[in-house]
């Protein structure tokens, strides 16, 4: 240190040593945080490597076009892939309108009342309820009480309940991001509440809403526990043709193969995971694209 100091020399040396130690601690702390952060990146790398090195050689057209089988060479994900597509489409049809309209209510219509507060708190807490509890709800209400059995519809309704809180929360955020000056301007020229929402708020908020919906749906695609609860883990060697048909889904098929003791089936599971991750990646890419388009405007 070269700054002038009127302290005696030894005191200055002690202070300098102390400062050096503090800098060392600070440096070590930063590096420790960095190392731990990088460890998360490394773990992701290992996980992906593990999946790809195990599964990639099973991944071919035959795998995509075959039904599950006791024989490893003949087994495939056809019914699971179609089941997942059915499931996610129906889930989107059910949850998107309900979630978005619910968010519109909470952001644009709801009075500041006790009931509104209860709804808000309730949604925040529902988002943290374990997915398996939704599975039990689906089992008791949709499968048994409503008699939908193990249908795609029962699965989609269960999944819809599961992701509704996520959709509502993200749609609310997107709606809230619309500047209130737009609303005031529209109200000032005599527009009704619904006209303001439809003509001004929704178009502005749409990219944000869609991004949130897609991310919520990709959560539904990966969920396994609720589907097991409603009994979707069965041998299904056909493609659902309507909402009342039985179905299987990718994560269910992966679970099935993983839980078998034979290593070959584990490799099939890895191949199934690659297909599942590919579906998720596609959906996320769409979400990123929509977000990008939305922010560019």
């Amino acid at each position: 240190m070269t700054l002038a100091n009127d302290n005696p020399a030894n005191q200055q040396a002690a202070a300098a040593a102390r400062l050096k130690r503090r800098h060392l601690v600070s440096w070590a702390f930063e590096k420790a945080c960095l190392t731990l952060t990088l460890s998360a990146v490394v773990v992701l790398g290992i996980l992906l490597w593990q999946v790809f090195s195990d599964g990639i050689h099973w991944l071919d057209l035959q795998f995509l076009q075959s039904f599950p089988s006791r024989f490893v060479e003949k087994a495939g994900v056809k019914s699971a892939l179609y089941g997942t597509l059915w499931l996610v489409s129906l889930t989107a049809l059910i949850s998107l309108p309900i979630g978005v309209l619910g968010a519109i209510y909470l952001e644009e219509y709801a009075p500041t009342s006790r009931l509104t507060r209860i709804i808000e708190i309730n949604i925040a807490n529902l988002a943290g309820v374990p997915s398996i509890v939704y599975g039990i709800l689906g089992l008791a209400i949709f499968v048994r009480f409503m008699g939908l059995e193990r249908s795609v519809l029962a699965g989609a309704m269960t999944m819809s309940l599961l992701i509704l809180p996520v959709i509502v929360i993200s749609a609310k955020e997107a709606i809230r991001a619309v500047p209130s000056s737009i609303r005031l301007a529209a109200f000032a020229v005599g527009a009704t509440q619904w006209q303001v929402v439809r003509a001004h708020v929704l178009p502005e908020a749409l990219p944000g809403i869609l991004t949130g919906v897609i991310l919520a749906l990709s959560r539904a695609i990966g969920e396994t526990a609720p589907l097991i609860m409603i009994g979707a883990l069965t041998y299904v060697a056909f493609i659902p043709e309507g909402p009342m048909d039985e179905f299987t889904a990718l994560p269910i098929q992966i679970f099935n193969w993983t839980s078998r003791p034979q290593a070959e089936f584990h490799e099939l599971a890895a191949a199934g995971i690659i297909v599942l991750l590919a579906v998720l990646l596609t959906m996320n890419a769409v979400a990123v694209y929509i977000r990008y388009r939305g922010t560019r405007r």
């Binding site: 070269t2 700054l3 800098h23």
Partner: peptide
């Protein structure tokens, strides 16, 4: 600062 450049490499910003 008292004749020393505050931004000289050997100067510790903390001090």
């Amino acid at each position: 600062y008292r004749g020393t450049d505050l931004y000289a490499p050997e100067v510790d910003p903390v001090e």
